[in-house]
Structure formats: structure tokens, C-alpha cells
Write a protein that binds this DNA or RNA. Structure first.
Length: 424
RNA sequence: GGAGAGAUGUCCGAGCUGGUUGAAGGAGCUGGUCUUGAAAACCAGUGAUACCGCAAGGUACCGAGGGUUCGAAUCCCUCUCUCUCCGCCA
């Protein structure tokens, strides 16, 4: 959410930002409602002042046993009038809030302007893309042959876009979760949290998933609960409506969680394999920082996520998303893309974003720069560190051997109980 | 699931027979006196909130949302959360 005063005073700038994002915002309506809101507040508060004064006067008169009936009658009418203004105000504020919640964040100035993911800019590459001297297979074929991926049974039990991991496949998934958590907690200084997998609506609004992207979320029928699409939601909302002690910033959390996404609008895309599932595991990095430190922290966070792929020996590149591809809440995002032989291209495995104060304002998360000073919004950041299912796919494909077996990356062997290779 | 108790400012904690209560008292914090320094003691200050307004100032806020009333932290209704006991359960 943007600051209402900021929009009012920088309407051209906001318009420009929306245009760069290919987004539309009802700014004319915003200005109208904003004006009407302030007028109604002035009116209502003026009447309330009168009411407060007269009510005190009535108290005094009553104590002196004087007649007050003419005043109470008058005040009763005044009360009705106030009620009318307040009702109207509430309506206007609701409409205004709807608009406010639907305006995306303003891209940082160094974000490249562009229409789509084709305009994203590559920042750097790491690792060598392996040339296979045999016909490389996709991970879904390898997985079925090795008996470690079983989407068919999952389809029987649940439906499309779910998978049973079996044997060393399940072990690999678990090994990766532990490997990533250990790396980020012991070497990168993140504090581990294990969050609830369901959150209420207010939390989803706090991080920006709602109200705009209702169709992407799984909602639990008959409740106010949503399955989390990422640990970002519960972990960021841990500090909702709080004023954080400035001494403990930056706060760095790492959280493993399953993630649930409806994937509306991607029917027919990535239907095979682990790339696009309704449920997947992710290790998420979340930071709360002082505003002046957030971009430095974004670089560090991205590096922390990259380290996972380096240790696993998976070739990747980092791209900065252009304005047209940027997520709703983000001011700047780096995607880390891992080399996926079956796609013959790099595929997103992590998305690291600085939301600046956009989420903090929605979720009301502040800190106090100095004792006695006014509290200000923190900056929030997060990024996958990294998506586990896609890492499994990447390992299977990049580490496959001519005989259809899969080598385990060195760093992972201790987590695999010494297993060095997955064979038939 | 059943029966109770509760939610007040940075914190603890009064008020809850409706009217100088934005809210006693204490702690904390800030400044001062005293002291070689510190502690203690004492004195003074202290909404670490949001909104409207150029300002003066005003309005709101005692878990949340409604209602009664000229006037609600105080009365009524609904909801949420916390705690205790019983039952059930991983």
C-alpha cells in the first residue's frame, strides 16, 4: 500500500509508475474520494466538538438541578446528523481503501522499464551448463523410471499437480530442506521459524496476496483461513501491528514450509514434473530492515540464496525483473534461475524482493529509529532460499548419468545418510 | 465440547453504582538536586498512537464491531483472543 498523502501529492509520479507496470489504477476516483473523505471528516468532527462541549455543559446544569430538556432535544438531532456524516464517511473510506489496496508498489528507479519477462536484464551467471554426451532426460521421466516420483498415484489420491515422492526421492527432498536451513542458520545468520500453514485474511492482505489475487489462493471452506502460498505470509505477519525495537534490526528469519497455490491461469503450463505443483516445499528468507539499509540487504539476501545453488553445483543466472514483470508488492526483484536441461533454459528457482515500506504499511510494522522519536515503517524483504521441488528437478536433470541414475551433489551426501547415487 | 475468569497507556495495574478520566497509583524513560563518581533519595517532566487542519486547534482511540444515552473505559448485544478447571485427543 502506498501512503495516501504520497499519492495525493505525487499523482503524476504514481500514474507514471502504473504505466511502466502496465497496470491501471483508478486515480481520478481516488482524488475524488480523498477530497470527499477530508470534507466529511471536517464536518463530522466539527459537530462532535459541539456535542462534547454541550454534553459537558449539560452535566454541569444537571448538577445544579437546572432544566436541560431544550438542550438534550437539540443534541439528539445533532447526534443523528453526526451519524449520517459518519455513515457516509465510512462508505467513502471503504471505497478509498479498495483503491489503495489495489495500487501496486512503485518500482525502484534502477529497475529496467519493460513489458514482459523478455525485458528482464541478466545480471550475472554462475557455473557451466553441462553438455551431455547422451540423450538427457527430463526429471519426470527419470523420476518414474527410478520410482522416486509418482504423480499418477497423487492424481488418484488428490488430483493433478500433486506428486508422491518415494524412497530416495522423498529423502532427497528432506535432505535439501535440512541442508538449506542449516546453511542459512549457521552460516548466514538467519533465525529459523516454523510457521502455521494457514493464515487468516488479514495476514494475506498484509503481505499483498489479497484482495487482488483471491483466485490464486486456497481457502478453507467455512472458515476465514487460507493455505499459505509462501512462508513469507505468516513470517512477515509475525510482526504485524508492532513497533519493533530498532536495536534488533535487521531481523532475519528463515522458514521452511509447504506452499499452496491454486495456479489459476496457468492451466496447460508445466503440466509434467515438479515445476508447477499445487503444493511444494520452500525454504524462505525474510528480512525486516531500516529503510536506508534495505537495498544493501537485498543484495545480501540474493547472495545467500545463490549460495545454495553454488554449494549444490547447479548452474544459474540472476536477472533483475523489469517493471512489467515485477510482482504487485515489490519495488525491486531479482530472480535466480537454475539451468533446467529439459526446458533447455534457465528456470526460476528463487525470487528475491525488496518491498520497501509497501507491506509494512499494509501490515503496520514499524520501528523507532531513536528513543522518543516517531516510529516509522520498516522495509520488508524476502526471497526463496530456495524452492525445494525445483531444486530436486534441477539436481535430477543436471546430475543424471548415461545409465539413468542420479549423482548426489557432494554437499548433500551427509544429508542423504551417505548415499552418493540414486539408481534403479 | 462443557463451566468459569479476563483483555485498560512503553510495562504493571486502578477505575467498570455513566459527566473536568487521555484515564488514579507504581515502574520505566528524560531533565535536575545531592555525590569525587555511581547507587539511593528527592523534585520536575513524560500519549514512544492515528487522523483532520497552513496554523490555532480539533477528533478518535481503554481487545474488535454494533447499540442505548445529551454524554460510555464504565450499561446492552455480537465477535475475537488469553487464562483456569472438566471432557476428548496427536
Amino acid at each position: 500500500m502506498l501512503d495516501i498523502k504520497f499519492i495525493r501529492n505525487n499523482i503524476e509520479l504514481v500514474e507514471e509508475a502504473l504505466k511502466k507496470r502496465n497496470a491501471k489504477g483508478n486515480l481520478d476516483e481516488f482524488l475524488k474520494l480523498d477530497k470527499s473523505r477530508r470534507e466529511l471528516i471536517a464536518k463530522s468532527e466539527q459537530l462532535k466538538q459541539t456535542r462534547n462541549e454541550v454534553s459537558q455543559e449539560i452535566g454541569r446544569l444537571k448538577r445544579d438541578k437546572k432544566d436541560i430538556t431544550h438542550l438534550t432535544k437539540e443534541m439528539k438531532e445533532l447526534g443523528q446528523e453526526i451519524k449520517r456524516y459518519d455513515r457516509e464517511l465510512k462508505e467513502v473510506e471503504e471505497k478509498l481503501n479498495d483503491i489503495l489496496l489495489s495500487i501496486p508498489n512503485i518500482p525502484n528507479e534502477d529497475v529496467p522499464v519493460g513489458q514482459s519477462d523478455e525485458d528482464n536484464k541478466e545480471i550475472r551467471r554462475w557455473g557451466e551448463v553441462k553438455e551431455f554426451d547422451f540423450e538427457a532426460k527430463a526429471h519426470w521421466d527419470l523420476g518414474e523410471e527410478l520410482g522416486i516420483l509418482d504423480p499418477k498415484t497423487a492424481a488418484k489420491v488428490t488430483g493433478a499437480r500433486f506428486t508422491f515422492l518415494k524412497g530416495l526421492g522423498a529423502r532427497l527432498e528432506r535432505a535439501l530442506v535440512n541442508f538449506m536451513l542449516d546453511l542459512h542458520t549457521t552460516e548466514h545468520g538467519y533465525t529459523e521459524v516454523f510457521p502455521p500453514y494457514m493464515v487468516h485474511r488479514r495476514s494475506m492482505v498484509g503481505t499483498g496476496q489479497l484482495p487482488k489475487f483471491e483466485e490464486d489462493a486456497f481457502k478453507i471452506e467455512g472458515t476465514d483461513y487460507y493455505m499459505i502460498p509462501t512462508a513469507e505470509v505468516p513470517v512477515t505477519n509475525m510482526y504485524r501491528e508492532e513497533i519493533i525495537d530498532g536495536d534488533i534490526l535487521p531481523i532475519k528469519h528463515v522458514a521452511y514450509s509447504a506452499c499452496f497455490r491454486a495456479e489459476a491461469g496457468s492451466a496447460g503450463r508445466d503440466t509434467r514434473g515438479l515445476i508447477r505443483q499445487h503444493q511444494f516445499n520452500k525454504v524462505e528468507l525474510v528480512k525486516f530492515t531500516r529503510p536506508e539499509e534495505s537495498y544493501e540487504e537485498l543484495e545480501k539476501l540474493t547472495n545467500n540464496a545463490e549460495e545454495v545453488l553454488k554449494r549444490l553445483g547447479l548452474p544459474y543466472r540472476v536477472v533483475v525483473l523489469c517493471t512489467g514483470d515485477l510482482g504487485f508488492s515489490s519495488a525491486k526483484t531479482y530472480d535466480i534461475e537454475v539451468w533446467m536441461p529439459s526446458y533447455n533454459r534457465y528456470v526460476e528457482i528463487s525470487s528475491c524482493s525488496n518491498f520497501e515500506d509497501f507491506q509494512a504499511r499494509r501490515a503496520d510494522i514499524k520501528y523507532r529509529p531513536k528513543k522518543g522519536e516517531k516510529a516509522v515503517y520498516v522495509h520488508t524483504l524476502n526471497g526463496s532460499g530456495v524452492a525445494v521441488g525445483r531444486t530436486v528437478a534441477a539436481i535430477m536433470e543436471n546430475y543424471q548419468m548415461a545409465d539413468g541414475s542420479i549423482e548426489i551433489p557432494k554437499a548433500l551426501i551427509p544429508y542423504m545418510g551417505g548415499v552418493e547415487r540414486i539408481t534403479k
